[in-house]
């Protein structure tokens, strides 16, 4: 589904990712862990097409298409979804109008308002979001947990093929984390070919969503890949024991 080869990325002449490789097959769940500032969020932004990040070299293919040639909205329409670590608060744009516009853009046929409204209502209940939040400006005045739930609401409505959760667990209380994780899990179960990248510092979310692979990033590249047990090893011993000298096990 997603193949990243020898990817090097810089921001304002500072190199963040260096010869980064990752291969994700349909239905796989990958967790990407690492200390602050090693390039985890850069990876998600580059996949989405944020032009703050410059691709110096390397290739990214998604569903056999060169992703780097697609604009941001084209990537989203093709099936990439990022749940942002810090979702934007947008003044003046009503949440429900935004959701309608997004779903409408994704579909080739005109939006079925009844179907849309029913789906939004059901998901709002499932995610324990207050109804009023749909009619407020995007993320304005939302708590940290509400913002993250709003991201998951968008994910469920847009039905992507590749979901990137960029530190979705940061700023979430225990109950909200469970709601967000279980809703994501439901979506993955309903859509078996959907792949998931979970970027996180902590293994707590991985107790709900079991990854097939856990990768550690350091100095802009993956230095170790293993199964879910690696996340709990990190929890116990921290990142410092892993270095670029570690041999990356093939995923």
């Amino acid at each position: 589904m997603l193949k990243i080869s020898n990817l090097s990325v810089s921001v304002e002449d500072k190199q963040i990712l260096k010869d980064f490789d990752l291969n994700i097959k349909p239905g796989e769940i990958h967790a990407i862990m690492g200390p602050n500032g090693v390039g985890k969020s850069t990876l998600s932004r580059v996949l989405m097409g944020d032009n703050h990040y410059k691709i110096d070299s390397g290739e990214i293919t998604f569903l056999d298409e060169d992703l780097t040639k697609l604009k941001v909205d084209e990537r989203a329409k093709k099936g990439i979804f990022i749940a942002y670590q810090h979702p934007r608060e947008i003044e003046g744009v009503n949440n429900i109008d935004f959701l309608k516009a997004a779903v409408d853009s994704k579909n080739d046929e005109p939006l079925n308002l009844f179907k849309f409204a029913t789906e939004v209502e059901n998901l709002t209940k499932e995610l324990k979001l207050k109804d009023g939040m749909l009619y407020r400006n995007i993320n304005q005045g939302f708590s940290g947990g509400e913002k993250k739930k709003n991201e998951i609401l968008q994910m469920r409505l847009l039905k992507p093929k590749l979901v990137i959760l960029d530190e979705i667990d940061s700023g979430l209380d225990v109950d909200s984390l469970k709601i967000v994780a279980l809703s994501t899990l439901d979506y993955i179960k309903e859509n078996k070919d959907t792949s998931l990248i979970i970027i996180t510092h902590y293994p707590r979310i991985l107790e709900y969503i079991k990854p097939d692979y856990v990768h550690i990033i350091k100095d802009g590249k993956i230095i170790k890949t293993s199964d879910a047990s690696l996340a709990f090893e990190i929890e116990k011993e921290g990142f410092s024991k892993f270095s670029t000298n570690d041999i990356k096990e093939k995923s």
Partner: peptide, 14 residues
């Protein structure tokens, strides 16, 4: 703001 909206599939103009 544009990135956020476009990353949901909404075109530049929209």
């Amino acid at each position: 703001d544009m990135l956020y909206l476009m990353s949901r599939g909404i075109s530049y103009n929209d």
